[in-house]
Structure formats: structure tokens, C-alpha cells
Amino acid sequence: MAHILEKYIPKAAVTPALYLIKKYQINLKIVGERQSKHGDFRRLPSGEMQITVNNNLNPYQFLLTLIHEIAHHVTYQKFGRVQPHGQEWKTVFQHLMIPFLNPETYPLSILPHLANYLKNPKASTDTDVNLSLALRGGVAESGKNFIFEIPLNSVFSFKNTLFKRGKKRRTRYECLNLKNQRVYLFNQNAEVFLIE
């Protein structure tokens, strides 16, 4: 298992991550990219617990997602059915992340954002714009732009739908769907294809 983990997470994280996987008897499955989530935890019909993590994540995203999902597993073992991202999960997640909060595992460009996020972790790291950008190295996927990078009134494509970028609200951008003329709110770190 160590040689598999080395492909996906920072080298310094392999031993502590492997310890957690063995301690909690994690059934880890690495899967192809899913648009709606980076990973998940579920109880299979057989009663076995399974964690999946997307294979397209960079090492820092993969590790954070892995520990996020292990926290769901541990929370379920300790407390049974509780709110998925409630206080029990937050406490477990914070505790499990402690061994990974060091510059050998996460670069200094990510650590302060990660520490701030862990004060009150949310269901998705993508909701924390600063952490999300730091985890991606501040660079959008090849051929894409972050929505905050494109000019006002620019047309862009997102999930094969054309939108026009509108004004920024407090934390999100209003964008007009050109097909149905409805306004949708986009996180400022959404990655889109700018239409020239």
C-alpha cells in the first residue's frame, strides 16, 4: 500500500497516512475524476466501509481529501450516525490532520491557509477560496481561467453551457446563463473556459 500512496500524496505523509489506514481498517479505492466531489465515505451493502478518492487530485488535495474521508469513517465508528460535517466530524478531522500540518508535508504557501481552514472546516475545501487557490498553486487547469480572472461581461463556458460574467457579490459572481436567461452564482475559484 505504501508504494501506491507514494504516487498520490507527499512523501512525508505516507507513513502517518498508512498508519491511519491500517489502524481504522480503511478500504481505500482510488477512482477516476468525478465532477461533483473529490472523495466520499460510504457503508456498502455488505456492511464494509469504503473510502474513495479521485485520482486526478494533486498530492496536497489528495492527502487533505483522504484525511477528510477517514475523519468520516472514524466519526461513524465513534458516534454512529451524526451530521455529516457536524461538530463531531470537525473535531475528529482537526485531530487527524495534526500530524500533517508541517512544512515537510505541506509547503509554506499552503500551510497558513490550511491552518485557517481547519479552525472551522467545511464540507468542501473549495468553499475556502484562499485554500482552494493555494492547493492548486494559484493556477487554473490547462486551458481554463478562474472566473475572477476574466473581465466583466465576458462569455465563458462551464459544463458545456455558455454564461456571461456579471458583477461580484460578497464572495461569488453573478453569471447569466445565455440559454435560459437565469442568473447563477459562481464561486470565485470556479474554473471556466473563456470564449474569445
Rank of each mutant, 00 (worst) to 15 (best):
Y8L: 06
K37G: 08
E6R: 15
S46H: 10
L28E: 09
K29Y: 05
T52I: 12
P16D: 01
L28H: 11
A2R: 05
Q50W: 07
K22C: 03
P16T: 06
R42T: 09
K11W: 01
Q50L: 15
K37H: 11
I26D: 03
G47Q: 07
V14F: 00
I30K: 00
S46Q: 05
I4C: 03
R34Q: 15
E6M: 12
T52H: 03
A2D: 14
Y8T: 10
R43F: 00
A2I: 05
K22R: 15
V14E: 04
Q50T: 11
L28D: 03
E6H: 08
T15H: 00
K22P: 08
M49L: 14
I26E: 09
R42M: 13
K37F: 00
L18P: 02
K7Y: 11
G47V: 11
P10D: 12
L28A: 10
S36K: 14
G32E: 14
I21A: 06
S46F: 07
I30P: 13
L44A: 10
L28Y: 05
Q25C: 10
Q25Y: 10
Y24G: 01
L28I: 03
K23H: 08
R43S: 09
H3E: 15
Q35M: 11
S36D: 14
K37Y: 06
P45T: 08
I51V: 13
N27E: 13
K29D: 01
Q25L: 05
A2N: 11
V31G: 01
K23F: 09
V14N: 00
H38K: 05
I51D: 04
I21R: 01
T15Q: 03
L18I: 03
M49K: 12
M1F: 02
A13H: 03
K7W: 02
G32A: 11
I9P: 02
A12H: 04
E33W: 10
A13E: 12
L20A: 11
K23G: 04
E33F: 15
Y8R: 06
K7R: 15
V53F: 04
T52C: 08
A13T: 07
I21Q: 01
L20G: 10
V31M: 06
P45A: 07
K37D: 07
S46L: 11
K22D: 15
R42V: 03
L20C: 02
A12P: 07
G32R: 15
V31W: 01
S36F: 01
P45W: 09
L18F: 00
N54V: 14
P16S: 07
E6V: 04
L5I: 01
I21E: 00
E48K: 13
L28K: 04
K7I: 11
H3C: 06
I9K: 06
H3A: 09
G39I: 13
R43T: 15
S36Q: 15
A13Y: 01
K37T: 08
P16A: 04
K11A: 04
G39Q: 07
V31P: 02
V14K: 05
R42G: 14
K37Q: 12
Y19N: 14
G32N: 13
Q50K: 08
M1I: 00
L20P: 02
R43G: 09
V53I: 15
T15C: 02
R42F: 14
G32F: 05
